[in-house]
Each structure stands twice: as C-alpha cells, then as structure tokens.
Design a protein around this nucleic acid. Structure first.
Lengths: 120, 120
DNA sequence: CAGCATCCTCAACGATACTG
DNA sequence: CAGTATCGTTGAGGATGCTG
C-alpha cells in the first residue's frame, strides 16, 4: 500500500499507552533511591550523603512521593536524638528487577553513548 | 554496632552512581517513541498521532535528541510531498528489552498504584 | 507533509538558612 | 538527627501560527 495513505496501526495507540512508566522512574532520584534501599533500611542522612548533591528538601519530597505510592515505608522512633528509617516495601522491591535491567543496559552502553555524544 | 554511628557503606555510593539512567528514559516521550518504532520505520505524522498530546515541536526535539544519541535514524526522501521516516538503529533496538521489563512491571502494577493513590 | 518560530507555563530541582 | 521555610533557577513541555 502507498506509504503515504496507509492507515495508522490501531495497536500503535495501545502500545504507546503501555509504554508510560507511571512511576516517576524518569525523575532524577527515584531510581537511585530504590537502589540505595535495596540492601535494607536507611536513615535520612544515610540517603542524603551517597546521593551526592541532593538537598534535604528534595530528598524529603522524593521520599514522600514514594511513600504515597507505597514503595517506601517511613518508620520514626521516639528517641533522642530522633531516628527515622526508610525501607522498601514488598511492592517497592518488585521494582528492583526491571530497574536492574535498565541499569545493566546503561552500564553496558555508557561508553558507546559517550562516544556518540562526543562526536556530535 | 550502634545504628547512629555506623559508617556509611562505601559501596552505596557506587550503587547510586550505577543507577543513573543516562538515556532520557525518564522524559515524557522517549520510551513511548522507542515502543512506537519497534515494528519498523514510521513517518512524522505516524508518530505524532498515536502519541496523543505531543506537539510537533516536542516530537521534533525528542527525535533529534534520540538521533544524537544514535538510537534513531532519520531518512528524508526527495519527493513531493516530502516524506521522512524514522527508524530504530540496531543500538536503539537494544533498548527494547530492558524497556519491556519496565512496561511489564507497569502493566502488572498499575491497578495497585491507582488504588494506593486514590486512597490518599 | 514535515517541520520551524515565538512565546509561555509550570514543576522539578537547587541554595541557603533555620528548628524541634 | 531529621527535617522545614523561603526564594530562585532551569528546562521540558505546551499553544499557536506560519512555511518550503
């Protein structure tokens, strides 16, 4: 069929809709936070420091958003000084595997990407 | 060890760095574009329409960025009316698999997410 | 058809300072 | 320690109109 007049594949609309990552996977910190929490609960400052450059405000906002989505639980202990721990929920842990696929891809192709970008 | 004074895991810094998706996977359109192109070359308007809501400007910008990263090739045919086709490169196709993992996760947990968000 | 030009909005992100 | 408050920046994305 003439490529100019061929109809649009209806399935393409569905395919596009399925491709939306509803979780804020794209934002700057969510993926990193999930990875940081994979080995167990972490305290606020234990997250603040390895995530070089994040500010307390942004960390708080990110954690709150992930809490709302049920990815993270916040546990505050009534101690002095105060202690708060963040941990992945079972639901949050299900993100670990697909995220690992992306991380692996990035690690494998980062050099390729750098070359291509440097060449342009 | 006292949880207050325990040292930060040095590996955590590396883990965080590995978690950065260098590709603009997070942006609003890149993942959808990759999925839209998985079955073969598409023309500008064939991408514009299924990606409901995208504007020509943003589509152009997204495609240009993906071209710079070597994910997409742009082929212009000297015809009248003009015809341009966009296709995934072999490199771009390598993204399909890890992206599918995310899409599957989203499809599986979308209802869970909707419930959690509605409850808050 | 495949875009470019122009202007605009808004939310993420950041810097700095302060507090229970 | 674990934040909050305030202010400022930035850029992705959008609206609209025009063109080779």
């Amino acid at each position: 069929m003439d490529p100019v007049t061929r109809p649009l594949d209806p399935d393409l609309f569905a395919a596009c809709d399925d491709a939306r990552p509803m979780i804020r996977i794209g934002d700057k910190w969510t993926t990193k936070l999930v990875v940081c929490l994979r080995d167990g609960p972490r305290r606020f400052n234990e997250l603040l420091r390895p995530l070089r450059g994040i500010t307390p405000k942004v960390l708080t906002e990110s954690l709150r958003a992930m809490e709302r989505d049920g990815l993270v639980v916040r546990t505050a202990y009534a101690e002095n000084p105060p202690r708060v721990e963040y941990a992945l929920t079972p639901f949050g842990r299900t993100l670990l595997e697909p995220l690992a696929a992306i991380c692996t891809w990035t690690a494998q192709h980062q050099s390729t990407l750098n070359e291509v970008r440097a060449a342009s």
